[in-house]
Design a protein around this nucleic acid. Structure first.
Lengths: 346, 346
DNA sequence: CTGAAAGCGCTTACAG
DNA sequence: CTGAAAGCGCTTACAG
């Protein structure tokens, strides 16, 4: 039915092995023969059967993408789609297919991953999250299955190729930026320190404060379960913050809402900066200053290094740092005199 | 290296054909033999080689997901990830793999799709968008490749299995809802009528107004390129709208910003309702009343009917309507007396 | 530079 | 109910 290597061989008057070598552009075949065979391939719209290729050469040309447990909340974070878009871009360039793996529990995820590797469905995996004691990662490691992590791996760090931002530096940079705007009391809100990415950003934040001789007080750090009451206490401190760093653009909107309910408006009463530079950052009012972490490139590079590893298992383990940059918008501004006055009074 | 059917056959003392029949749970094999073979499969952690199966039975157990042209803006709309999540759920249940197909241009997309089908990489496709004169859809149709559309197909409608909401009814319902809250002048903002989904919603909006004897004036409809100036004119009409319908949650935030800059705050000065019920709807201040179109189910059902079609080509063409429901939140409220007064004055 | 043949790991008529 | 054999469409030593 479909066009096969035999049809081409017959029409080009060569053996199937020759056609196969032309497919692979083997240097052993003369240019004249190649041209003749290619003409026939084009004429018939031939495309090598994928399953047959995989079976014969034991490569699937396919990578698995492991999503975190499918909690709707996390899933709707555009981070994942954007990183998949980056992966997709590279995969398409290299003619690889992607298989997305999701599951409700760790056990289910592990089962699916085992099935896929044993059935030879994929050559390797990209893990879109990072957590400690992950049975899936243990499995990859023990079975020597190629995998790449987006973010900082919690296990086998030095043996694992991963793509990440310098989150420590990003936290430091954005804090520095606020300090240069004249802010002295800067709070960090929405710090989910159980996740490495946030732990690192907070570490950078602390260091920037210390470098500038400012005091890094734990009461200025609220974790991601912060409530309006927490914010209220924060803003009733003798030295209330005049700038806030929030861990993720997705938290900026609810945060802004709480602030406005407490009577603080952006950016006059308080500057706000965030991370990730999702599209929502531009849509907020005022538009949100945010650290662009180039999610697309995180995905692209993760796919690139995974595929390199698949094609050449001797490829070195790599740690790739994707640069970030602060995108300045109206939610942050120089500390105003008014703030000083208020502080003076309180 | 990996466990094959031969290993199992040898250990269970049967022919490989018998093992194959056990894999398929063929009724021809005695339960005793099945049990013996299965024990060995479990003991060795056997999983049938996927490429070999595909090659032998010409099924890939894999579906392609076609994304619209990868404009970042569209891509970051959580709609796509959420529908992929629905597809993923069903695919995993049925042990199918998904391959996401993206491209920058229609030609590139068509090339990739052709490659994938000729190479037998997938059994069928889900198209996540719908537009007129789509070469990709033409190709599927002409080559008789199974495909399913999320949304309303623009071509071959009656021959195409698709999964959609009743967008006409949704538009009508939400308008009706506002009418019941006492609103008489209701505008529709962000109507991208080049897309069927929005055309239908606007049609429902018009009909609801007419059914209630209210006037459906075109000046109350702004397309998706609306500016603050357009809104300004709208609100300076003799009978200014007291309620707004916006085409997509993603537009609600910029819309709200413009409104507040014009001096109108939600929901006192104006009620606002929207479509899709993305997570952002809850995060807005005030939280946004939105029509939940159950995106997850759109994806799930699209995958379900595609796979049914793949497994049994005689399966009928189906049009599946996923129910919607209005999720009421604080952005909409009964028209206040104040509005009436204002109208009286102007 | 090219071809004949074996093999990848399954499935499926066919025979018994 | 089970097995021996051919075949799916490729790749790759081996031989020339």
């Amino acid at each position: 039915m479909a066009v096969t290597i035999k049809d081409i061989a017959k029409r080009a008057n060569v053996a199937t092995s020759t056609v196969s070598r032309v497919i692979q552009d083997s240097p052993k075949i003369s240019e004249a023969t190649k041209a003749r065979v290619r003409k026939e391939m084009k004429a018939l719209g031939y495309e090598p059967n994928f399953s047959a290729q995989s079976l014969a050469n034991k490569k699937t040309q396919s990578i698995g993408i492991i999503m975190p447990d499918a909690e709707v909340a996390i899933f709707q974070n555009p981070f994942f789609l954007e990183s998949i878009r980056g992966i997709s871009e590279l995969a398409n360039e290299k003619n690889f297919t992607m298989a997305i793996v999701t599951a409700r529990t760790d056990e289910e995820l592990l089962d699916r991953v085992k099935m896929m590797t044993r059935a030879n469905r994929v050559d390797g995996f990209i893990v879109l999250y990072s957590k400690s004691e992950d049975p899936v990662v243990d499995y990859f490691h023990n079975e020597k299955i190629p995998y790449t992590v987006i973010g900082k791996p919690q296990q086998y760090v030095n043996e694992t190729t991963h793509v990440d931002n310098d989150n420590f530096q990003a936290g430091k940079d954005v804090t520095q930026y606020l300090i240069e705007l004249g802010h002295e009391y800067i709070a960090y809100v929405g710090a989910d320190v159980s996740r490495t990415v946030h732990k690192e950003r907070v570490r950078g934040y602390r260091e920037a404060l210390q470098d500038s001789g400012l005091f890094a007080d734990e009461t200025y750090i609220l974790d991601s379960s912060f409530t309006k009451a927490d914010l209220d206490s924060l803003f009733k401190l003798p030295n209330r913050p005049t700038a806030l760093i929030v861990g993720d653009d997705m938290h900026a909107l609810p945060l802004q809402t709480m602030l406005s309910q407490l009577g603080f408006s952006l950016p006059e009463a308080c500057s706000l900066v965030s991370f990730n530079n999702l599209r929502i950052a531009e849509m907020l009012n005022p538009p949100l200053t945010s650290v662009d972490i180039d999610i697309f490139t995180l995905g692209y590079q993760a796919a690139k290094s995974l595929i390199e590893k698949i094609l050449d298992p001797k490829e070195m383990t790599k740690h790739i740092i994707v640069p970030h940059r602060i995108v300045e918008r109206a939610s942050s501004q120089r500390r105003t005199m008014e703030d000083t006055t208020v502080e003076g009074i309180s």
